[in-house]
Amino acid sequence: MKKFAVLAAVVLLAAAPAWAQRTVNEMRPLSPTGDVTVSNIEGSVRVIGWSNAQVEITGTLGADVEELEITGDESELRIEVKAPKHPEWLETDLVLRIPVAASIEVEAVSATVEVEGLTGSVDLESVSGWVKTSGRPSELSVETVSGDITVAESAPRTDLASVSGSIKVDLATGRLDAESVSGAIRVENGSLESASFETVSGDISYAGDIVGRGSYDFESMSGGVTVLVPSGVSAQFDITTFSGSIDNDIGPEAERASKYTPEKELSFSTGSGGASVSIESFSGSIKIRTR
């Protein structure tokens, strides 16, 4: 019996951080187009749009979290997880419901960030946590170091950047700038008016329409670039690589640009040539395919 009591005490102590978590349930007024800023170090932040002129904050705070500081007023609300200098248990999960048209800014370290159903401006930063967005904000900016970025639907103006995290956009319209170092960039169902994709070693893949007089720039050092366009696309293509390959399904073959180097170039237009597609790599392979 004594052995059982000791064992129970050990189990309870080991589980202490879990049951020491405190729950959060707060409500604050916010104008329909107000600004909300959230910062969290570890855990998760989930932001959901709703029709109320209020911000609801629910979730749990890590055992070592000093407090959840909520400051500001109806036009601007700031929510910050306050931590001591050398914390061990910071895992804090927050769920926020904010007015649909409000602007949200989230700063996270190793916390994941998820935003759904907002039409205001969305600005998200996470160091190692992944970031996911859905809905169509008026403006979208996401930056991570190693966290993956997944965007279900882009904004009229979207900026995405990561070091080693991958970037994936499922439905892309408007203007999109995406850059990474080693992470792959993948855009599906694109109907962008203009786009700029840049990596060092990450692969770039774009599948979508080439619109009217749109401008599309792809640049990589060693990453491969694959562009899938509809048959009958109307665009001017300018493609160049130093030592990579150019594999083109919709026009002429690439030619050596110099007798001294392995450089290859390919310039051609299809249809009326309204849009501009520029692809450049150092050693990455370049593929133009039809969808």
């Binding site: 170091v145 070091v163 080693s164 080693s182 060092v200 060693s222």
Partner: peptide, 16 residues
């Protein structure tokens, strides 16, 4: 990990 990514990328560009 981040240092490795940055160093590898710098080396790659140096080679280029």
């Amino acid at each position: 990990d981040t240092q490795q990514v940055v160093d590898d990328s710098l080396q790659l560009i140096d080679e280029a």
